[in-house]
Design a protein around this nucleic acid. Structure first.
Lengths: 200, 200
DNA sequence: CGAAAATTTGACATGACTCAACTGGAGTGG
DNA sequence: CCACTCCAGTTGAGTCATGTCAAATTTTCG
């Protein structure tokens, strides 16, 4: 992917949220650095300080937390047009609660803390953009949380494969289980039971 | 509560997040209207459009969603210095997914959509403030979500009463159960079991 | 006081976890 | 090309947490 292509994608995304003229778009893009990552690369790591945040152009990331017992819990999968970051860590330069790991080859536009501060300073309109983006993230998580406490895993599974078709081909099943908040064994059994229901 | 007292509390809160001079603080406060609500009053209602959002000065609210079966699911309790709002509904003037109901007499500084737009226009610095506030909300919810999918109800219960001591006196137990994502019967039994553990 | 709501309890069903064993495929090195 | 390992996925048996439904009890509040 070329820098030009990346900027086109990013500009398109930005324009969906706030109106900016071509010149501003270009200037904003310049704050971001285009980078490619390979499968298993880490973008930020739980326990360290997240010094950058990124916008996914292509590929796929998982954002997860590892608990005391060593179990992984997937907060979300970041497809293209989503952000990868640990906000608390990035904003306050504190220890990250989450890690981000690439699940396949992926292109990212990234920015470090220092440049982001500069970006917000130079383009106050970006404050508005990020407010809107974070609002969107929060709304999505609120609904996901509600779904999680109000339904059982099978419903959440159906919701997921409907909302993100093809995810089963991209993400190993044990990570989907983690996203759903259950164990791999449980997901395996659940799928078998659902099959039984369909056949009859 | 007088308008002056309310503005002092709100100004204190604002100053914790961004630096503003006395004059600006005063101007911002003027956008908000001080109102008192009684127990069971509704601030916004699921299915309607949330035309306002509020900052809680005193008292307590619950923000909840009622599912298709009629069961209530508490998203969060809003104590003083928290916000009550359905962001998706307020920002995009769409149907609210949540309702907000007062659990006791409460004072609120509230603002309607039109005034909020004006506020952000007149004081672009507020964009930054709201970005920071929403970030905080999101971080809190991310951790709560993680806790919910990674632990059982008894751990979440202990976490809650430790983080919000006295909540048991303020909120009926079945609503605490709803917040924890379990049924009232389960919480009742759980507490009994925990007592057994402590006695021996 | 009396009605309504909240809480507790009982008996039972079920979803999800635990631990262990097994299967099957994807590499890897001889 | 085979033997080997590693990892994901499946399966089984048993347990535990939580849900379900119904009834009894306590508390709240008009």
């Amino acid at each position: 992917m070329t820098k030009i292509e990346a900027h086109v994608l990013f500009s398109k995304y930005l324009s969906n949220h706030i109106s900016l003229d071509e010149k501003h778009l270009q200037a904003i893009c310049e704050f971001y650095e285009l980078k490619q990552y390979s499968k298993k690369d880490i973008f930020f790591k739980q326990g360290s300080i997240a010094c950058k945040e990124g916008f996914v152009l292509s590929g796929l990331w998982k954002i997860f937390h590892r608990d005391i017992k060593g179990a992984e819990h997937v907060l979300y999968f970041a497809f293209s047009n989503w952000w990868i970051g640990d906000m608390a860590s990035f904003s306050n330069q504190t220890e990250a609660f989450f890690s981000a790991e690439a699940l396949e080859k992926t292109w990212v536009l990234e920015i470090d803390k220092h440049k982001k501060d500069k970006l917000l300073q130079d383009f106050p309109a970006m404050e508005r953009l990020f407010r809107i983006i974070i609002e969107k993230h929060l709304v999505v998580l609120q609904k996901r949380f509600l779904l999680t406490i109000s339904t059982q895993a099978s419903e959440r599974y159906l919701e997921l494969i409907q909302r993100a078709p093809g995810i089963e081909q991209l993400v190993p099943q044990h990570q989907i289980a983690s996203y759903l908040g259950i164990l791999p064994e449980s997901l395996s059994r659940m799928k078998k039971n659902m099959m039984k229901g369909i056949k009859n």
